[in-house]
Amino acid sequence: MTRPSVLFVCVHNAGRSQMAVGFLAHLAGDRIEARSAGSAPAETVNPAAVEVMAEIGIDISDQSPKILTPDTVETSDVVITMGCGDACPVFPGVSYRDWALDDPAGKGVDAVRPIRDEIKARVEALIAELVPATA
């Protein structure tokens, strides 16, 4: 069985989607391919997102925002949107989910921590769904 591919999409690909990829890579290892993109990527990853992830031992400082392309979506098994507006292309056979999460842009670390924790809980549930524990 090939490993599932998950694409996290938000507008700037600088906060929520980067934290989600960090958690998925950290918690699922190589069992799930984790990617992210943005409909209007920022220049750099949100420093508050980098800091709150570093607090729990996950380094996303080497990540950079990437542009969302139709090919990236089409080659994903699951696309999770976190506020990408109407820019997300839709393809048959791709599973779409929308995670309504606050945008960490312009917020300090105290405001970003709860967003981080909500993303972690959702990623843990996603891993349990995509890679069920073997008996």
Rank of each mutant, 00 (worst) to 15 (best):
T72C: 01
R16I: 12
V11A: 08
G38V: 04
G85T: 09
D59H: 13
K107Q: 15
A49W: 06
T134L: 14
T75R: 15
C10L: 07
S76G: 00
A100C: 08
T81P: 03
D103T: 10
L27E: 11
I56A: 09
A125D: 12
A87M: 04
I119T: 01
A135W: 12
S39E: 00
A105K: 11
T44A: 15
A54S: 14
D102G: 10
E33V: 05
E118Q: 15
V21W: 01
A14W: 02
L68Y: 05
I67E: 11
W99D: 07
V79Y: 06
L126Q: 05
V11M: 10
K66C: 07
A40F: 03
P41Y: 04
I119C: 00
L7T: 00
Q63C: 10
D77V: 05
V45S: 00
F23I: 08
A14L: 07
F91C: 06
A125L: 06
M19N: 05
V78Y: 03
N13P: 06
V45Q: 01
V50K: 12
P47G: 12
I58N: 04
D59L: 13
T72A: 12
C84G: 13
R116M: 04
P114S: 13
P89F: 04
E43W: 11
I56P: 09
I58E: 03
V52W: 09
A111M: 14
L27D: 11
A34D: 00
A34P: 00
V123R: 01
P65S: 02
K66E: 12
D117Q: 13
R31H: 13
